[in-house]
Computed example of a mutant assay.
Amino acid sequence: MNAVLSKPPLRQRLKPLLEGFDTPLLLAMLWLAGLGLMSMYSAGFDHGTRFVDHARNMALAAAIMFVVAQVPPQRLMALAVPLYTLGVALLVATALFGITKKGATRWLNVGIVIQPSEILKIATPLMLAWWFQRREGQLRTMDFGIALALLAVPTLLVAKQPDLGTSILVFGAGFFVVFFAGFPWRIILPAMILGAAGITALVMSEEKICQPDVEWPVLREYQKHRVCTLLDPHKDPLGKGFHIIQGEIAIGSGGLTGKGFMQGTQTHLEFIPERTTDFIFAAYGEEFGLMGALALLAGFTALILRGLMIASEAPTLFGRLMAGAITLSFFTYVFVNMGMVSGILPVVGVPLPFISYGGTAMVTLGLSLGILLAIAKSRRGKKG
């Protein structure tokens, strides 16, 4: 009787929860988390409680990741429509009743103040992966048109707030799903050629189009300033160009091996703006130099390559599309953040995963990695 009623040991009860985790992916995450904590301690030890808060946010993200990793992809797929619908409804409510700060209406009070656009970073690719899973084996051109419409709704609503950085991330995450689903290259290539031609024309005509009396269609005045500042930050070195110039100085002064842990002068003399958030890579590059940057890039490369491998081996179309989209979203975050800090892209406010401070961004990171781990576990389950 006692043997029947006795509980199994805790280790035995936890074993099913811990089995099936993808070890290479976890190692890449631990490497990046360690670099993130180290760089945040150096950049934020004299910046209030940033390091403690960053560690807390990272622990919260790890807990969310662990919980989400236990959910089978089929159940995640069932959340696609309600989560996407809720996210879009909240974006509409934000446009109508949202809180405006510094000219942007990005927040909504629902008892607590939230930023609904963060939901769409996950909900948009989830919805599109669900759509293509339903249409598997019978895809037509019209199906891609519907998918692009589903992608356009949240992208445009977020861009209208205005929040160009988040709209780029939402669009990127969704478009990667459409791309992996088989979006035709005959449409992608002309768009890429037009984009390259447009950028070339922009650079060549910078002197004329960046005059104060020239208005740009579609883009707002501050967005025009960001692009013009990127093209020539030295026109306003103490104003709009300050961020880019100081970021370049910090990264360049790091040299091969950097100035050393907690020894960054640009960082600790307050020359780098947003040194614990958007511009933390500049602080990192100053203290750890080219070798440190390569170590950081090695971690991101390992995570991205492993994510793509998980995507290629996923047992369902939904799993392949979600894993691929999440993985390339990390690439977008890294490319845009490092690009804007290094002066090759406009400053759009995109955090660097694991490294930048930010509670909401860390929660989104935990959700994304949890879904990726869940897909990896489902792949192993199928093999078993």
Rank of each mutant, 00 (worst) to 15 (best):
G359K: 04
V334A: 03
V336E: 12
G324W: 02
G349E: 13
E313I: 06
I355Q: 04
P315Y: 10
N337I: 14
G299D: 10
G339F: 12
G358Y: 08
V341G: 05
P351M: 11
E313Q: 15
G339D: 13
M322W: 09
L305V: 07
S342Y: 02
M340N: 09
S356M: 00
S329K: 05
I304L: 06
Y357R: 05
L345T: 07
L308T: 03
F354W: 15
A325L: 03
T332G: 15
G324A: 03
I310L: 10
G339T: 12
G299Q: 11
I310F: 11
P351F: 10
T327K: 04
P351I: 09
T301G: 12
T301Q: 02
A302S: 13
L317A: 08
V347F: 04
L345N: 05
M322E: 05
T316D: 09
L321D: 00
P351Y: 10
L303R: 04
A311P: 10
V347M: 08
V341I: 12
P353D: 12
V334D: 00
T301W: 08
P346H: 07
L328Y: 04
V334Y: 00
G343E: 02
F330A: 03
P346Q: 07
I310P: 07
A302C: 13
Y357W: 08
G349A: 13
L345D: 03
F300C: 00
A298V: 13
A311S: 15
M340D: 10
V347D: 03
G307F: 04
G349W: 13
F354R: 13
G343R: 02
L345G: 05
L297F: 14
R320M: 11
G359V: 02
M338L: 15
F330H: 04
N337W: 14
M322I: 08
E313C: 07
T327S: 06
M309N: 13
V350Y: 07
S329W: 11
A325E: 00
L352N: 05
I355L: 13
M340S: 09
G319W: 07
M309I: 09
L305P: 00
F335C: 08
G324T: 01
E313K: 14
A298G: 15
I304M: 12
V336F: 14
G358F: 10
F331A: 15
L328G: 06
M340H: 10
F300E: 00
I326C: 01
G319Q: 02
S342E: 04
M340R: 10
F318Q: 00
T332C: 15
T327P: 00
V347P: 02
F331E: 06
F335Y: 12
M338W: 10
F331L: 15
Y357H: 11
V350N: 08
S342V: 01
T327C: 09
F335T: 11
G343H: 01
R320Y: 06
L308N: 05
L308G: 07
V334H: 01
G324F: 03
V350E: 07
F318S: 01
I310W: 11
G359R: 03
G319C: 05
F330M: 04
T301P: 01
S329M: 11
I304Q: 07
G299P: 07
S312Q: 13
M338Q: 09
S329F: 06
L317H: 02
R320T: 09
M322L: 14
S312G: 10
Y333N: 07
S356E: 00
A298M: 14
G339W: 12
P346E: 03
L328D: 07
